[in-house]
Nucleic acid binder design. Structure first.
Lengths: 221, 221
DNA sequence: GCATTTGCTGAATTGTTATTTATTAATTTG
DNA sequence: CAAATTAATAAATAACAATTCAGCAAATGC
């Protein structure tokens, strides 16, 4: 098997797609969708310009494949895992859901894809729709089910479900977005939470505290 | 004075800069920084490609001017206004600060600039630094002072100031970002808060409730 | 080894866009 | 009203980047 520098290239039909997707993930997270050049992806994957087009229709399909292989796959695993726990309380389930999201997505490269989509949704509406259907809707649905069941069982007091989902979601989203935007720029770092997980836990506690049944009359109907 | 269609163009040395900035604001909010073409700005301002270069060095300077004329100017006004109120409680001040931000920035086109900066910070680090110094740092400092004073006076219990700022900020940021990303894409709208101000008020109540002095031991030191 | 297949290359094509600058024409001035 | 001034134009420049495709060379089979 030829070493690097020996023959001009290697034939690797099987390995190419995942090599290309790995390279693409890295670059998309680093530079965003538009700013990532096909040639850069090719080079990072150890091939030349034309090769990615032998395995994927175009840049857009590469992006979709990356999202499927990372975020969608992990979401499904998390979802299945939570579905097992029929005896856990709503608070416990929400805590697990958010902590899992943080561990498997928020704290990984994939979080960069979440930021990327918020960043470029308007310029690439087809990608936005894809991401909405595959990621945002299922994720919100999962949280919504947990909250709804908690309200039905009397664990949580009645409240606007969408607002509750937004509240559970906002700290996570902000953390993912900031750490992949200003957090990457030298000189802007001061404003970044040094310990994201601690912040997320605090935020969750606060929201759950306000959601618990007895207290004050404030959340919308 | 020639009407439109009469002579090929009008000379308006005084009015040009603001016409150009108005057009630029609209387009930046709509398409983002990179995707906004100088020629589009020119056309929207009723001039041709070359003209903006007579009044501004380049695209970057146009963007900075837009941010100064909108967000920075309004922040200074809000800041000055809050500085007057020496008798208000911390909760009141925070409520006013966030509601003002929503009214004067969050609910206006300017919110699109906030989203834009989060979106493109990594590709345009110089702009990111400018925005950080002119907007993010002052805004966080203002909130930080209010929270600090509230903690000193005993109104708020001790907590990690940066975390509190993040918590106050996250719902606002998320609302501004989502409404200018997925919120603009037909088909993604379902997930958007229909009544952002109601959501923001709910979120603030919840955070203040957790910050008030007596209760449970949860926020970090 | 030789012929065939096919993974891969890289030059060419097509399209985009920030910025410069020579030129044009509205306005001003004397 | 004819110079002089200068706001504005628009063509040219200089990149850059997605995608295509004719041809090359690594595998494979015989």
């Amino acid at each position: 098997m030829g070493e690097s520098g020996n023959s001009r290239w290697q034939r690797k039909k099987e390995a190419r797609p995942s090599e290309i997707l790995d390279a693409a993930l890295m670059l998309f997270v680093d530079k965003g969708y538009r700013a990532t050049k096909m040639e850069d992806i090719a080079q990072a994957a150890g091939v030349t310009k034309g090769t990615p087009y032998l395995y994927f229709q175009n840049k857009e399909e590469i992006f979709k494949a990356v999202v499927r292989e990372t975020i969608v796959a992990r979401m499904q695993a998390m979802s299945a895992q939570l579905a097992q726990l029929h005896d856990a309380s709503g608070s416990q389930l929400l805590g697990m859901a958010l902590e899992n999201w943080w561990i498997h997505i928020g704290a990984t490269r994939s979080a960069g894809l979440c930021k990327l989509m918020a960043a470029e949704a308007t310029n690439f509406p087809e990608l936005a729709l894809f991401y909405y259907e595959e990621v945002i809707r299922p994720a919100r649905q999962l949280l919504g089910h947990i909250v709804q069941r908690g309200m039905d069982s009397g664990e949580f007091r009645p409240a606007n479900i969408e607002h509750v989902i937004d509240m559970l979601t906002a700290p996570m989203l902000m953390t993912m977005i900031l750490s992949h935007s200003f957090g990457q720029v030298p000189g802007c770092c001061e404003s970044l939470t040094q310990d994201p997980l601690a912040f997320l836990k605090t935020a969750l506690q606060l929201t759950l505290q306000g959601l618990q049944n007895p207290p004050a009359p404030d959340t919308q109907s």
